[in-house]
Structure formats: C-alpha cells, structure tokens
Design a protein around this nucleic acid. Structure first.
Length: 897
RNA sequence: GGGUGCGUAGCUCAGCGGUAGAGCAUCGCCUUCACACGGCGGGGGUCACAGGUUCAAUCCCUGUCGCACCCA
C-alpha cells in the first residue's frame, strides 16, 4: 500500500542511489542507438549550487531523461572548471588566515595547497547536483586541470602558435591591480560612478599667457601625457595645431595634434593623450607614433622611471622634485596630490561634478587600470569568421533565434583575446625563454629544449613562462577535450558534435562563442548543433538575485522544504524560451500540490485494484470511457513530445498538468468510480486496465520533470522493477478505436453535468439536496446516453434520477439549455424564482448579444464576399446556434410564468 | 547614444489575423468513503497608447509612452 503521502527526502536518496549504482546514467559508446549529447557547462570548482544552476540543470536533465526514454544513447558529460582567479582567491584567503601568503609559500607549495583544497572542498556542487536528480554520467566526470584536458590545452596552444593565431604582443590590457593580472574585456564591467571632470590649463610653448584647457576624469595620469589632441575642424584651436604645450608638473613639451577622436562638444574640445593608460588614447598614440610612457606600475602605484629623463623645472609650472616625492604612492593618493598641486599653481580652471562609467574587475571589484604589458594573445577575429559562418549557415542554431544577433554582434567586432594571466593556478603557458629572450613554444620542456638546441646549436638553460592561461581557454576546448582529444577515442568519434548546449544568455560571449571558435578550428566542425538559451532566475518582483540584495533563494532549502520534484516541475512550468523565471518559495509550494495530486490519484487507483495488465492492448478496448481516455492521452503525449522537441518546457509542463489533473483526475477517475464500485465485471476490469495503462503513460510523461515521484509510483505499481522508469520507453500516441464517437459521447456527458452543476450552484441549491434531471426535447441518442451514464450523472450532478420530461415542466423548475435540449430541474420551493428569472434573462441577453455581433458581421457585404468561405459558413452556424439558444431561453422564461 | 526583449484578468504568463485563455490569487458552496497541498461553481480583461494595412487587428506595419536587459 502506498503511504498516505509522498516522502520526498527518503525516496530521492534511495532512488538516486539505485539509478546511479545500476548504471542508468551511463552512455554506451558501443550502442547502435542514435547518440544524444549534452556537455555540462562546467561549474566553477569553487561553486556551490545556486538557483541559476537549479534552472539550467533541471532543463538539461529533463531533456536528457526525455531523450534517454526515446532510446537515444545519452551522454550528459559532467565536470567542473578550475576557475583560475576564483580558486586562487579562495586559497589565498585561507593562507592569509594562517598568517602566510602565496608568495611566502612559493609556487610549488602553493599549487600543492590548491590541489589539497580541491580534493577536500572542490566537489560541493557535484554532490549537490545529485540532490537535484541530475542524471549525469558520473564516471566520466572531468576537470579542466586533469592531465588529459591539460594535454589538450598544450596541444592547442602549440598548434595555434605555429599557425600564428597565438602570439606575444605588447599592448594595452585591462589590468586588475588587486589580482595583479591581466583580465579579458569580458571580465570587466563598467559601473556608473560619481566623479569629477577636472579642467586643467596647459601653457602654450612660446606664447606667453596663452593656455589650452583640457578636461579629464583622470588627472593622475597627467604625467604620462604625450600630446593634447583637438579636432581638426575645431576653429578655436586651429592655430595651435603643430605647436607644443608645456606639460604641467612635468615640464616636458608635448605636441598639440589634430585628431578626430577629440569631440568639440565634449569638455573643452581639447583632450590630453595618455597612450599607456587609456584605450582611446592608445589608438591616438599609435596613429601619431607617439611615445607611450607608463606612470603606473602593477600595483597601480605611481612610478616616474619612464618619464624621469624628461622632467624639468619650469617656473610656476613644473617642479620635478614634487613628482619624485609622489613615486610609490597609490593612484588615488596621486590624484589628490596632483589636483592640489595644480590648484596651487593656478592651473586648475574648474572642477565639475560628473557621472562617468568606470571599468571594474568583475571579481575583484576594484577599478581596472589599462596597462601596457607584454601578454599572449589569441587572434580571435580570425577564429570568429568560421564561427559566424557556421551560425549564418544554420549548422548551429540558437533557440530562440534572436540570440544569434547577440552572438554575431560580439564576434564581428571582437578584439584580440588576451589569454595570459599573471596567476599561478591554471595551465602554465607552454613557452620557454632562452638566455637571449628567444621564445620556444612546445608541449613540454623537452620539446622546447630540442627547439632551443636547433636554434642555438648548444644546450642552453631555458625558463618557462611564469604565466597561466585564461580559464576560458580550457573551457573553450571542453566539448572535445572531455571526450579524449587529442586522442582519437570512440567517444570523440561518436559524441562530437554534441546535440545541444543549454545555458543562459550571459554566457554567450564568455563560453559559447569560445567553444564555437575552438571547436571549429580544432575539430573542423561545430561543437553543438543547437544552443538553447534560457532566462535567468529572478525573485518574485523580477529583481536579479544577488547576495547584496539579500533576495537569493537557496535551491537546497527549497528541496528540503518541498521536494526536488516540486522545484523541478516549477522550473519547467515557468521556463519559456528566453523568458526569465520569477521564482519564490510560494510558487514552489503551490506546484507541490501537483506532486501530491499525482500521488493521491495513484493511491486511489491502487485502492481500487488498478494494476498494470500484462499484454494489455489499447486497440482492443470497447467502452467509450476507455477510448475517450486513451484518445485524450494521445493528445497529451503528442503535445508533451512536441513541446520538449521545441525546448518549450512550460508547454510541456502545462500539457502534462492539464491532462493529469483536469482529464485523468477530475473526469476520468470520477467517471470510473461507479464502475469500480461494481466490483468484478468485464466492464470494471477494462476500466482498471485502461486506468493503469494511462497512469503508466502519465508517469512516463512526467518523469523528465518529476523523476522521483514518478519513479516511486512506477515501482510501487509494478510497471517495472524499482528504478527502471528512467529507462522505460517514451510513450507514443496509439490510435484508439472509434475515438470520434467516444469523444462525442463523453463531451455530451461532461456538458450535461457541467450545466446542471452550474445552475444548482448559482441557484444556491445545497449539494445535499438531490433533484431529478428532466430532459426536454431530447432525441433518442441523447436519452440513450443519459441512460447509459445515469449512475455517473446522478453522482456527479447530485441527481435523484435522469429521465425525459413528460408533459409540462413542473412549476418552479430551474432550466438550462444544452444544444437542442432544455434541462429541467424541478426545485419548487427550493429556489428563488425571481433569481432564476434574472439568471435566465442574463443568459438570454448573452446569447442575443453574441448573435447580434455575428449578425452584424454577416450583414457586412464585404465580409461575406471577401472572407474565406469557411469563415463565413462558421459564422452562419454560430448565428444559428446563438439564435436557437436565445429562443430556448425565451421559452424557458415563458414557462417560469 | 546603439541594440534586444517585454507591456493581455489582482499576480505569473500562453495565444499572435475571424469565438480572449491557463495556473495561482479572489469570492460562494461543500469536512461526498484518493486528495482541504481537495471538490464544485462564480466574478474579473476598451489585450499600454495613437495612427495605418485589411472585409476583419490583442495578433501585421509605423510612431509614442513605460519597464527590463545587453553593448558603448
């Protein structure tokens, strides 16, 4: 016997263990079934399961379970990435708490410590994914720093270096002073800040008392200025072009140049140019072949080494000793000092309050400093071309389609990708330097040594590049490195390209684009055929969840409270393509009712002897009720399948919900009750068999969304051994015999019951009072149906009997119109005849209003002549229907007296 | 500033040329032997606004307003 209620916690742990230990999640490379592959977007090894994970992994698991049931050889590849910066931060914090540091420990000891941390704490999210029911092929779990994946990284690096797609360059990069590492454009977020715009006047060389005033948000970079730029069209400054200004505080002469970058409308129309500390200025500097002295170091402290030689004292304008004293100070202290000195020298014209966008490191949270350094770059523009083409040609398709524009927009104007990071945790760059600085790129030290021997003719001491690669470099290889590449494994041949990548839009640039570029370059084919982009999880007010807002919802807390199935079904029900999901505990609680409803329906079945019948053939059923249910189930199966095929999880959930609750529970089981009450009869045994069959269909349909409760019921009913629903075949529609007739009959019964219930409820007849149902103007077929279903009608419509009306309707009856029939409910003394008159008049008015609208349409000459004939015909029928209904209601009113 | 998406019942959303729908919430009745995490019934919408196309517009087009997000 099923327990009175479902206990999620107990069932989840038990069933997951059965699935996992029985190998139910395992892909089978030797299978001859069609493969279906999803690569997990590898979560950070430092991560723990948050609600966004719950969304994306629920979607993935639902798709995987669906395809597995469709007999596909399913590989859902698990794993995590090493999260260079995040992980290094975590371990550095640990060291700090122990009173030591990364630098004190040294590289090797530090890396040992990170691996130790990973072993102890790194598996959090993989444990949590099991609670979500995720059916990942765990024995295949990979980590981006695994030896195999590291080998793939080295191989790709070496190959691409050989092809000129990876190179060293001295460029301006986004420098994170907190991490003291370069970061990529994507790891920078601009934040709007309250700042100031400082107007500073620079004296013009050789023109006493003439100044040019520049406006800047970053006065601290002034010592690095190498020019003042004005727009060539700007009349105000035309005569100054070609002259020189004297750089305040420094004393160096800098040219006044003409460049379109300078916007006459902004500030004063004259801008200071600091190529080593601003991306726009860097471009100007390149155009005009200007020097690029740096005045900030890796800690964003002030340094004068590169300008010291050109500092000179100029009376009232520059004093080298002042700048020298500032050396070593932080950029913000230097800003204050420089502003103060300019003010003292009367070179500060004014200060305006100014809102500006300040780039910040997305992880460190500190302002980013553009810094001129030598780094490794990847020629992303070149790699982007095949990726763009693949999407243009539909070899990879985004769902929903509009995200392709986002993808294109970013790839079409992509900058070189800075792939080196000044960190220790990550894939060390496979480049070695000879004594003269010559670089040798090889997969290992021996390979580099061989190259060096060829170059030098002797064995020289080589030192490996200190830096590591951007984590996304290894993540970009994920779809094939996890399958064994560079080895040509059976898995690689079978599962690449993968079928679908599931992720949120915020990761299109970071990861999707990089996998596309790397996959096409290395494998010569797209990494996935479909990219399904889902929304983000928000709170019930639509706000993005964040720790600082305090509105985060912990998925594990929801699971503890309501069960995994409730959370998963909620997510499915709310996940339309590209739609954000607004989640709250209350909504999960309300969907838990559905889990409970399913459980109770099954329990009711069990109590009534419903059990799977071996060899049951749906095509052989005779009763209209059986045929109607099977036909309805076919519709549900078709809807659910189509919705999952189209990644419409919400439609899938709704189709299952509707069929289970509104059809199976509300009508079918109610209709079945009188039959079950008969005990043993051929009729009852057919209904029991059909009930079991369709319950099995429901369990299979719902399994991708609610794996645990469905699996539990599957086992309890003996549809299969415990834990085998996960591998049961996905249901297919199977035509029910004479479904049309069955549907007509059941629809009529449903209509009759609904009408009677409505009248009784509106006339406030208590359910305890039974009243006859008298049918006026009913034809033989209707009367036969009423007779066949009398028990059911009596039960569900609170009727004492159902029979044709003979003679006149008893005085004081309530009436309702059902097609050509008028339903008469003799309730003299029980109802308020005035209220009944009002009710009937309202009904009649409604029918007349509808008839009037349709009539108006049909009276329109151009409608009749220009609309499609079937639409015109349809409206003629509607008019006839409403007119007849109004007439019957009119007659009913007449009978009221 | 450029782009994308969205404004439909109190809330969350579906519909997308011809009858405006669901879930939740709400109201009324019902402790009927699966389920009160329930059953039955009801109310509730000038489909943001203004033009246009069309026999017909919530749906297509244009513009306006509002909200959200992305990029600069």
């Amino acid at each position: 016997m099923l327990e009175k209620s479902f206990s999620p916690a107990e069932a989840e742990a038990r069933l997951y263990a059965i699935w996992e230990s029985s190998g139910a999640f395992a892909a089978d490379p030797t299978s001859d079934a069609d493969p279906f592959t999803i690569m997990i977007p590898p979560p950070n090894v430092t991560g723990s399961l948050h609600i966004g994970h719950a969304l994306t992994f629920t979607v993935q698991d639902a798709l995987v379970r669906f395809r597995r049931m469709q007999r596909r050889d399913t590989l859902w590849q698990p794993g995590s990435d090493h999260a260079g910066i995040a992980t290094q931060m975590v371990v550095e914090r640990l060291l700090a708490a122990e009173g030591t540091s990364r630098k004190q420990q040294g590289r090797e000891a530090f890396l040992d410590r990170v691996w130790q941390w990973k072993a102890e704490s790194g598996g959090t999210i993989t444990r949590q994914l099991r609670r979500l029911g995720a059916s990942l092929d765990w024995p295949r779990e990979r980590f981006t720093m695994d030896e195999g994946l590291s080998r793939a990284v080295r191989r790709v690096f070496v190959e691409m270096h050989g092809q000129g797609l990876i190179y060293r360059d001295r460029r301006l990069v986004n420098w994170d002073p907190a991490f003291q590492s370069a970061i990529s454009d994507l790891e920078v977020e601009s934040r709007e800040m309250d700042g100031s715009l400082w107007y500073i006047r620079y004296p013009i060389e050789g023109v006493p008392d003439r100044f040019i005033t520049v406006a800047t948000t970053r006065p601290e970079t002034l010592p690095g200025d190498v020019a003042v730029a004005v727009n060539p069209e700007d009349e105000r400054y035309r005569d100054l072009i070609g002259r020189h200004a004297i750089l305040p505080l420094v004393g160096r002469r800098i040219p006044i140049i003409a460049d379109g970058y300078s916007d006459p409308e902004k500030g004063t129309g004259a801008v200071k140019i600091t190529p080593a500390h601003d991306f726009n200025d860097f471009a100007v500097g390149q155009r005009h072949a200007l020097p690029m002295p740096s005045i900030l170091d890796r800690q964003a402290g002030f340094v004068i080494d590169e300008i010291a030689g050109e500092m000179r004292a100029v009376e009232g304008i520059a004093d080298p000793a002042y700048l020298t004293r500032l050396a070593g100070q932080d950029r913000f202290a230097v800003r204050a000092a420089i502003v103060a000195e300019l003010e003292r020298l009367d070179l500060l014209v004014q200060v305006e309050r100014h809102r500006n966008q300040v780039p910040h490191g997305d992880r460190s949270g500190v302002p980013i400093e553009p810094l001129l350094t030598t780094q490794w770059f990847c020629n992303a523009a070149e790699l982007a071309k095949p990726a763009i083409r693949a999407v243009e040609e539909g070899r990879t398709v985004f769902v929903p389609r509009q995200w392709e524009n986002t993808f294109f927009a970013w790839l079409r104007e992509i900058e070189p990708w800075c792939i080196s990071r000044q960190l220790w945790w990550g894939h060390r760059i496979p480049a070695w330097y000879g004594p003269d600085g010559q670089v040798f790129v090889a997969e290992d030290a021996a390979g580099a040594a061989a190259l060096a021997r060829t170059a030098y003719g002797t064995d020289e001491v080589l030192t490996q590049d200190e830096d590591v690669l951007d984590t996304w470099f290894s993540s970009g290889l994920w779809p094939f490195s996890t399958l064994g590449w560079p080895d040509q494994t059976p898995e690689l041949a079978r599962y690449y390209p993968t079928d679908v990548l599931v992720t949120a839009f915020d990761i299109i640039f970071f990861w999707v684009a990089r996998m596309m570029m790397m996959g096409l370059h290395v494998m010569g084919d797209v990494p996935f055929r479909t990219v399904y982009i889902h929304g983000l999880v928000r709170d019930e007010r639509g706000q993005k969840m964040s720790k600082s807002k305090g509105n985060v919802i912990d998925p594990l807390a929801l699971i503890d409270q309501f069960g995994t199935d409730a959370l998963r079904f909620t997510i499915c029900a709310l996940t339309g393509p590209g739609r954000d999901v607004k989640l709250s505990p209350a909504i999960v609680e309300s969907y838990r009712s559905f889990v409970t409803k399913l459980w109770n329906a099954a329990r009711f079945c069990e109590m009534n002897g419903v059990a799977p019948v071996p060899g049951f053939d749906p095509a052989q059923v005779k009763l209209p009720l059986s045929r109607w249910l099977l036909d309805s189930a076919n519709v549900a199966v078709a809807e659910a399948t189509a919705a999952l095929d189209a990644y419409r999880l919400n439609d899938y959930a709704a189709a299952c919900y509707r069929f289970t609750w509104n059809t199976y529970c509300d009508w079918f089981l109610e209709f079945a009750k009188p039959v079950f009450a008969q005990g043993e009869s051929p009729e009852a045994s057919e209904i029991r068999a059909v009930a079991a069959h369709v319950l099995g269909t429901i369990l299979r349909l719902l399994h991708p969304a609610m794996p645990f409760v469905t699996e539990e019921l599957w086992g309890a009913f003996g549809f299969g051994a415990e834990g085998t629903l996960i591998r049961a075949p996905w249901p297919k529609p199977a035509a029910a015999a004479e479904a049309e007739a069955a549907r007509a009959e059941l629809d009529w019964i449903v209509g009759l019951i609904t009408e009677v219930r409505g009248v009784r409820s509106e006339m406030r007849v208590p359910p305890s009072i039974l009243a006859p149902i008298l049918l006026r103007d009913a034809d033989a077929e209707a009367l036969a149906r009423a007779a066949r279903w009398e028990d059911t009608i009596r039960r569900m419509a609170r009727a004492s009997e159902v029979r044709p009306l003979e003679g006149e309707a008893p005085a004081g009856s309530a009436q309702a119109v059902l097609g050509p029939i008028t339903i008469v409910l003799p309730l003299a003394g029980l109802i308020d005849l005035g209220a009944e008159r009002v009710r009937l008049e309202k009904e009649r008015a409604k029918a007349l209003e509808e008839a009037r609208k349709v009539q108006a349409k049909l009276s329109n000459e151009s409608f009749v002549s220009r609309a499609k004939p079937e639409v015109v015909e349809e409206n003629r029928e509607r008019l006839a229907g409403f007119t007849a209904e109004a007439a019957r209601l009119e007659a009913a009113l007449g009978r009221l007296g």
